[in-house]
Structure formats: structure tokens, C-alpha cells
């Protein structure tokens, strides 16, 4: 489903040039799960932006189902994001003035779904992350873990092909981390999504079937077999 060929991304800051991605080749199949690790500044978020069509590579191709995201117009790219890609961010990124329900609905707005159906699907998605009762609450009235669950419901309500999560547990304490990872993995299994997650949590990394490490813009991939569940510590 994903095919990245020779993807580079350079940022220019005054005179200095930063190679955030220095030639990444990567193939992902439908339903794959990839965990990305690496030191800070290695280029993990940058790679996720390429996959999600949030930014364009300096060179190379990012094919999603055979379509090069790098070559799409801004309008088409926005449509691809709206239909196919769900994001979960480290700091939840909920709209502070909207309720949980309304936050989830924002993901359905670009799809032109009628309000009645939109409300139903949003309620359903909140139910599936265990927040059915918290629909009318504002983000500020929810705990960090609950906020992230709302964000997950928002990412999945449109039934995307791809779920991209950038350190989804980065802002949570340990007890909530496992909870969120469990929710994400459960949904991945249930929906058969392609799921890419950036994490600093080595416990999570160890459980992943495929583990990518990005250092100075270069990617190395390690296959963990058997795929699941996590091996017992020796």
C-alpha cells in the first residue's frame, strides 16, 4: 500500500541545512504495523509527515496505493488526508472549545456527511474507546488519557486506511500508556488498518512485529519474529 522511494527532506534554517530525511526507502502492506524508534531529531516526525501527506519531500516519491502524494495538488492532498489518513498526536490536539463529541465530528466535516449521520458515527466512535458518557465534556474536563482516547476516536471515526500516531503516549503517565496502546492495538486488529507509530517507549517497541529505527535521517528495519505477543524477559 505504501511505497517510499528515495525520500529526502531538507530544512533550511538560514545558512545551515538540516537533512531530516536522507534517502528513505520503505514498503508497507495493507494491515502492517510499524513502530518507529530513534534518538530525538532523528527524523521520525518528518517521516510521519511524509506518510500522512502533511508535507512534501524534497526529493523522492511517496506512493499511497500507487498515487504519488508528493505530486498531488494541495486540494487533492487535503482530500486524501481527509478520507484515508487518521492522526493521533502526542499532545492530543483537541479543539479546546468543542466538546468530545464535536471534536470527533470535525473529522467527518471534510467528508460532507450529513449532520445526523455525523452525530451517530461520532457517538459510536466515542463508545468504542469507552467514552460514551463523556460526549458533552470539554477537553479541559477530561484526563490526559481520556483526551487521547477522544483523539483516537477522532482519527478512526472516518474509517481511514492508515493510522499515524506520533508518540501517542508521550504526554501520559505509565498507567495510561498501556491503556492507550491497548486501545490502539485493539482497533488496529479490529479494522485491519495500516498502523505506524512513533514511540520512545522500548517496552512497546519490543512488542512490535516490525521495528524501524531512524538515525540522522536514515532508516533501518528489524523484523521481530514471532510477531506477537511480547516475549518473556529472560
Amino acid at each position: 500500500m505504501y511505497e517510499l522511494i528515495g525520500v529526502t527532506k531538507q530544512y533550511r534554517r538560514g545558512q545551515t541545512r538540516v537533512d531530516a530525511l536522507a534517502g528513505v526507502d520503505l514498503t508497507l502492506d495493507q494491515g502492517d504495523r510499524l513502530v518507529i524508534q530513534g534518538p530525538t531529531g532523528g527524523g521520525k516526525s518528518t517521516l510521519l509527515q511524509m506518510l500522512g501527506g502533511l508535507d512534501r519531500p524534497t526529493s523522492g516519491r511517496v506512493l499511497l496505493d500507487g498515487i504519488d502524494l508528493a505530486a498531488l495538488s494541495e486540494r487533492r492532498l487535503t482530500a486524501v488526508r481527509g478520507q484515508n489518513i487518521g492522526f493521533v498526536f502526542q499532545s492530543f490536539n483537541l479543539i479546546p472549545t468543542l466538546t468530545a463529541q464535536e471534536n470527533v465530528e470535525t473529522a467527518l466535516v471534510p467528508l460532507g456527511i450529513r449532520p445526523a449521520e455525523r452525530r451517530g458515527r461520532a457517538a459510536e466512535a466515542l463508545e468504542s474507546v469507552g467514552l460514551g458518557e463523556r460526549r458533552g465534556h470539554l477537553p479541559s474536563e477530561l484526563s490526559g488519557g481520556q483526551q487521547q482516547r477522544v483523539a483516537i476516536a477522532r482519527a478512526l471515526v472516518k474509517r481511514p486506511k492508515v493510522l499515524l500516531a506520533d508518540e501517542p503516549t508521550g504526554n501520559l503517565d505509565e498507567s495510561m500508556r498501556d491503556e492507550i496502546v491497548d486501545v490502539l492495538e485493539g482497533l488496529w486488529k479490529e479494522h485491519g488498518l495500516t498502523f505506524v507509530m512513533v514511540t520512545h517507549d522500548s517496552a512497546i517497541a519490543r512488542r512490535a512485529p516490525r521495528l524501524a529505527t531512524i538515525r540522522k535521517g536514515r532508516i533501518t528495519i528489524k523484523e521481530n519474529r514471532p510477531a506477537a505477543p511480547a516475549p518473556v524477559e529472560a
Binding site: R81, F87, N93, I95
Partner: peptide
Amino acid sequence: VREFGTLKALGWTSGR
């Protein structure tokens, strides 16, 4: 910025 960036990431057009 983050709020509008998020909406754009969710597929909201610049126009919207």
C-alpha cells in the same frame, strides 16, 4: 496555530 494545523491535518481545506 496548532488548532488550525490539526484541522488541516484532518482534511479541512484552507478555505474552510
